[in-house]
């Protein structure tokens, strides 16, 4: 095989593998979410399909696959049909630059454990995830329904507001590492627990996790689909597999922000005690699972915000805090003469 063919083959293997892992994680997540939430609320949750209800995601999938697909009479056909595809495609695209392990040498060449190692990796994620809002906006507008329209409006305003805080929370991390490349940001955290950005950039980590929760519309920021007011928000009118696609996009986005948080703040695949236990992709998975469980835990703990609270919290608390964090980080770096 020529080098180009080898590159393509390796990339194809990685794409298929990550796609498979994400789909599996999505299925498992729906089960974990329902079970864990049920236990937090003194219920049992789905426990009839297979051992511990483990086959429930499969049963749901089969059911959704065979359901009739309904489209509202006044819907704008093409945009209504395209919206779930836009949501899912942007969700899957952004995980392409997230690394999950150290590059290693095999077959006489370097293999990176990520689909694409971009110089502007973080900016790429920012760009693609900012496109994700279109899936929601298109779905909300095209269904010709006031609940979906209100859900779409809320979603676009919310994502737009919290994206700013999300992006600003990365700046301190980027300054410490001197690079937009996620591999280098992880490498800059080497040396044990106290070198992780979650310790050195604690404020940024808190801002990131808060803004990320809002970006993926999870409780307490799940106003775009607040059941008590908007039925199911922007995806009210979707049924069958298109509904499943909307759900999938939501969970994949959740996995992406958790994986990114792991890499940027929790040292990715680095071991907390490098002298005792070696670095490994297993660390990455463990941290990812902890963050994902955190999302579910939050949902079982906190009530939903009011809409004006959401807006003023985003603009008057998170954004100024993120700016202060950047200024302090820059000041300390300049004082120490570090950074690049």
């Amino acid at each position: 095989m020529s080098p180009l063919q080898q590159d393509l083959a390796i990339a194809a293997v990685k794409v298929v593998a990550i796609f498979g892992v994400l789909l599996t994680l999505f299925a498992v997540m729906t089960w974990v979410e329902r079970r864990a939430l049920a236990f937090m609320q003194f219920r049992l949750g789905p426990n009839r399909t297979g051992p511990f209800g483990l086959l429930q995601p499969m049963a749901d999938g089969i059911k959704l696959f065979f359901k009739e697909e309904v489209m509202p009479a006044g819907a704008v056909k093409w945009i209504f049909l395209a919206a779930p595809a836009v949501a899912v495609i942007t969700a899957f695209l952004s995980i392409a630059v997230v690394p999950y392990g150290k590059p290693f040498r095999a077959f006489g060449r370097e293999i990176t454990l990520q689909i694409a190692d971009l110089d502007v990796g973080l900016l790429y994620i920012f760009a693609v995830s900012s496109l994700g809002v279109y899936g929601v906006v298109m779905a909300g507008w095209a269904a010709n329904n006031k609940y979906t329209l209100l859900g779409g409006l809320r979603a676009s305003a919310q994502m737009f507001s919290y994206e700013l805080a999300l992006g600003l929370s990365w700046v301190g991390v980027i300054m410490l590492a001197g690079s937009f490349r996620i591999q280098e940001i992880v490498a800059a955290q080497a040396g044990g627990l106290h070198h992780w950005n979650a310790v050195q950039q604690l404020l940024a980590f808190i801002i990131y996790m808060t803004a990320a929760t809002a970006e993926v519309s999870r409780t307490p920021f799940d106003l775009p689909e607040g059941e008590t007011e908007l039925v199911a928000g922007f995806h009210t009118e979707y049924s069958s597999m298109r509904f499943a696609l909307m759900q999938m996009a939501e969970y994949v986005n959740m996995i992406t922000v958790a994986a990114l948080g792991t890499n940027l703040f929790l040292g990715g695949w680095l071991s907390p005690f490098p002298s005792l236990i070696p670095d490994s992709t297993l660390w990455f998975l463990a941290k990812l699972v902890i963050l994902l469980f955190g999302f579910i835990w939050l949902r079982g703990t906190l009530p939903r915000l009011r809409y004006d609270q959401l807006m003023s919290f985003g603009w008057k608390v998170l954004v100024p805090l993120a700016v202060v964090n950047i200024l302090v980080t820059a000041g300390v770096l300049a004082y120490l003469g570090g950074g690049r």
Binding site: L131, F160, E163
Partner: peptide, 22 residues
């Protein structure tokens, strides 16, 4: 120029057009 490419999407397609649609 991947930097400009990313900025083009972040600023125009991702932010300004969302406001337009909004």
């Amino acid at each position: 120029s991947p930097f400009i490419a990313a900025l083009q999407v972040v600023v125009y397609a991702g932010a300004i057009m969302v406001l337009f649609l909004f």
